[in-house]
Amino acid sequence: MKIRKKLKETNFEKRKISFNPKITQQTLINLLTIIVGSFFFAIGVNSFMIAGNLGEGGFIGISIILFYAYEIPTALSNLVLNFLILIVGFRYLGKRAMYYTIITIPMTSLMLWITEDWQIQSNEILVNTVFGGLFIGLGIGLIIRIGSTTAGTTILARMANKYLDVNVSYALLFFDLIVVAIGLTVMTLEQALLTVIALYIATKVMDFIIEGMNPKKAITIITEKPDVLGKMINTEIRRGITIMDGRGFYSQKDKDILYIVINKSQLTRLKRLIKKYDENAFVVVHDVNSVLGNYFI
């Protein structure tokens, strides 16, 4: 009786448990981006690379080799190979990347199957090389931009980074070149070299899509006139500045260090203004892959 009385006197909060995941507008945009990116990727592979008897890097390159050697459809081999590596190395992807990758793999294979016969024949092999690299870079760039991956060598590169302390970019390039080298069993040396050119074009296009049309630059300025340059940057460039304390090792003098992130288009003007207000300022320009936060527009 005492237990029942205590239970009646106790106030329990009512909590609703929802088993339905929230699908936001941004999620739908990301899914649409995966579809469009997969379509462009498939166009690059089928309409240009395979049409020109060229190869490719990564697991899609292995799929193309299998197609040339045994006529195994690229859509099928791409699906199987990428899901196998995803099962082995899923722990190397973040939660968001893994979910989107699970959608991306069958989507790219579906697009490869739909566009299987969409081949553009050209008497000039460079047309296939350039546009193949362009469409593949565009497709993968869109997929990576929303936080997904195409699995394959991306996972292998992250495994190499963890266990061998190898830079991810270099590891990707290494695996791609290995696939191209294996492709010499079904391609001529000229076709393999053209494939390397297509890989380079795809990488540049992919970087452009991921970084955006207006990449950023980080500027470090060591100056004797921090107040003058700080005011100039605020009024002329209209950017915020961070001031850090520094000290010269040889002179042992305290120095103010200005740090600022700007659009690449503003770099030339900033350099000119710095030279105008302080010719002795020491300026270092850094490449910036991405900028996060509410302080940069």
Rank of each mutant, 00 (worst) to 15 (best):
V180E: 06
F174G: 12
I155S: 00
I209T: 08
V196N: 06
I201R: 07
A218C: 05
G212Y: 06
E190K: 15
E211I: 14
E224W: 08
G137Y: 03
V205Q: 08
R158T: 06
L134D: 07
L199K: 02
D165H: 14
D227E: 15
L138G: 01
I155N: 00
N161W: 01
K231Y: 13
S169D: 13
G212Q: 12
E190T: 14
I222N: 04
A160Q: 05
T223P: 00
R145C: 02
D207A: 11
I140W: 00
D176F: 01
V166K: 12
V168M: 08
T150F: 02
S169C: 05
F135Y: 06
I144V: 14
I219K: 01
L164Q: 08
F135D: 04
V180S: 04
L194Q: 12
V228D: 07
I178R: 09
G230F: 11
G152A: 07
I197K: 01
V205I: 13
I221Y: 03
I221Q: 05
G132W: 10
N214K: 12
L184F: 12
F135G: 04
V127A: 09
G230D: 11
A202V: 00
V127W: 11
I197F: 02
G230W: 12
L142E: 06
G139A: 05
K225F: 05
A202T: 03
I182D: 11
N161T: 10
M206Y: 05
A202L: 04
T220M: 14
I182Q: 13
F131V: 03
A198R: 01
T223G: 02
F174H: 09
P226M: 09
M159H: 01
V228K: 11
G183T: 02
T188C: 05
D227Q: 15
P215R: 05
N161P: 09
M206H: 10
L193A: 15
K231G: 15
R158I: 08
K217T: 06
D207I: 12
I155E: 00
L156V: 07
I136N: 10
V127L: 15
L184C: 12
A192M: 11
G147D: 03
I197E: 03
G183Q: 08
